[in-house]
């Protein structure tokens, strides 16, 4: 004889089952540690921190064709320059915990294939960017107090200044 299910019992079971993942998620919430930002040589990045963090991929992607095809190499956005400053000499991209790029890419589940061809370690390269003379920064600190990029561009006449009110 089939045993009838009591509706109350079924409901409580579903409640418990539903609450379990919620409890699990709540327990995990906010506890994911981002990978530690590895220290770079030099005292300043080539772009403000928020720009370079968000758009380094775009910069490298846009300018690589100019560099390869038209030989218009921008030492400040050079791939080799990034590696020279940021990656430790003994780092390997196959061991993400040692490698500046790979640690963050792994954390963010980004898979780029730069290092299938490009050297993943610094080299004695001549393509140094103009801001950092590649001495190890004595009191290294990221400059987070940067000014607006547009303001800087206007300052050096790369962007038109705000229009003066017409008489």
């Amino acid at each position: 004889m089939l045993r009838g299910k009591s509706p109350a019992r079924a409901a409580s079971r579903w409640l418990v089952l539903g609450a379990l993942p919620l409890l699990f998620l709540t327990a995990c919430g906010g506890s994911v540690e981002p990978p530690p930002m590895m220290e770079a040589r030099g005292d300043q990045c080539v772009e403000p921190l928020d720009v370079i963090r968000k758009d380094h991929g775009k910069l490298l992607m846009h300018e690589r064709d100019d560099a390869v095809i038209r030989a218009a190499r921008n030492p400040d956005h050079s791939f080799v320059g990034c590696i020279d400053c940021h990656v430790a000499t003994e780092a390997r991209h196959t061991e993400p915990e040692t490698h500046f790029c790979a640690s963050c890419h792994t954390f963010n589940a980004v898979r780029v294939d730069c290092f299938q061809c490009h050297r993943d370690r610094p080299s004695e390269s001549e393509y140094l960017h103009t801001l950092n003379p590649h001495a190890p920064g004595v009191d290294f600190a990221w400059d987070t107090d940067h000014r607006g990029v547009a303001a800087n561009l206007a300052e050096v006449d790369l962007l038109p200044p705000p229009e003066a009110p017409k008489p």
């Binding site: 300043q44 080539v46 772009e47 928020d50 720009v51 968000k54 758009d55 775009k58 910069l59 846009h62 300018e63 100019d66 218009a72 190499r73 921008n74 030492p75 400040d76 956005h77 960017h129 103009t130 801001l131 400059d143 107090d145 940067h146 000014r147 990029v149 547009a150 800087n152 561009l153 300052e155 050096v156 790369l158 962007l159």
Partner: peptide, 26 residues
């Protein structure tokens, strides 16, 4: 910082292909 930015923009501008106007806008 601003000095270095100027250095960056003027010094390396010869080969600059894109200039960041705002985050994400080139």
């Amino acid at each position: 910082a601003p000095l270095s930015r100027r250095q960056f923009i003027t010094g390396a501008a010869a080969a600059v292909a894109s200039v960041t106007v705002a985050p994400g806008v080139f």
